[in-house]
Design a protein around this nucleic acid. Structure first.
Lengths: 145, 145
DNA sequence: TTGCGTGCAAAGGTTTTGCATGGCA
DNA sequence: TGCCATGCAAAACCTTTGCACGCAA
């Protein structure tokens, strides 16, 4: 959800767009283009500012395909309303793009360890792991290139 | 090693810098600054071009932290040709922007666990954890806002 | 001499920021 | 009314590229 003191027309528009995209990713430019022809386009600055808020509150994930291209966003909605959510991380497959939601005790352990031994407070909402999902890893190792 | 048909003064300078940095990371700007006051500064383009070559031949690793910050490089020298580099990860402080270089067995455990139990092959070169470093966390909790 | 490396400056693209305006409560 | 969000344009940022020059072999 977009946290705001009050809601604006732009925030509603963005949210409706986000809901449409569920399960796929988009760039800031995609958002801009989506509203470009309409009678109520969204300013670039507004798009970035609103998306940043969403990233901060965890309803949208931000990740990078490569250093050259624009940032990718993906709407994941409200994972859990309260702040004591079980640490649930996201893993982006670098090959097929699948976003894996992983709720695993090892991750909680890591989180606790980083806190206790290194003083580091991990932010699960923002952290995106990159790697290969099982399917792509298998394909990678199979004979056919 | 910097592969080149022949060696230039700039390539020697860069290599000497790389050797000094072993074990830590740096940006293209760091390289530039390092040579800035000297009688033989290195041009930005040269730095990028040479670093890119090093990345290509595997003596330097390149990390994409996020789209805003500059790319991070790390000199690993000529390692064994196989890919058994010790997995170390990076943690970016959301507040002060520090990039923490963390080589911790818990991370290797996590990596192994993701592989064995979930089939996920983690990519340590791209995965960046977000959170708060110890200093910023402390500041966050102290009374003065 | 030949050709690649160099370096300056400009371009490139994405994201942020300044500031005046307008809308929500 | 007060304040925050908006939006335009300009700035900021890192990185790449064009082109002429210089150095290595």
């Amino acid at each position: 959800m977009i946290k705001a003191v009050y809601k604006t027309r732009q925030q509603d528009l963005l949210l409706s767009f986000l809901k449409q995209t569920k399960g796929s990713h988009f760039t800031a430019e995609d958002v801009k283009n989506h509203f470009a022809g309409m009678e109520n386009p969204l300013g670039t600055a507004t798009i970035y500012r609103q998306l940043e808020k969403c990233v901060a509150d965890g309803t949208v994930l931000k990740y990078f395909i490569d250093e050259k291209s624009a940032a990718c966003f993906e709407y994941i909605g409200e994972t859990s309303p309260n702040d004591d959510e079980p640490p649930h991380f996201h893993i982006k497959c670098e090959k097929c793009g699948t976003l894996i939601h992983l709720d695993c005790s090892e991750l909680s352990h890591l989180q606790a360890h980083l806190k206790e031994s290194h003083g580091i407070t991990l932010n699960p909402r923002r952290t995106v792991f990159y790697g290969l999902c099982a399917e792509c890893e298998e394909k990678n190792n199979s004979p056919e290139k």
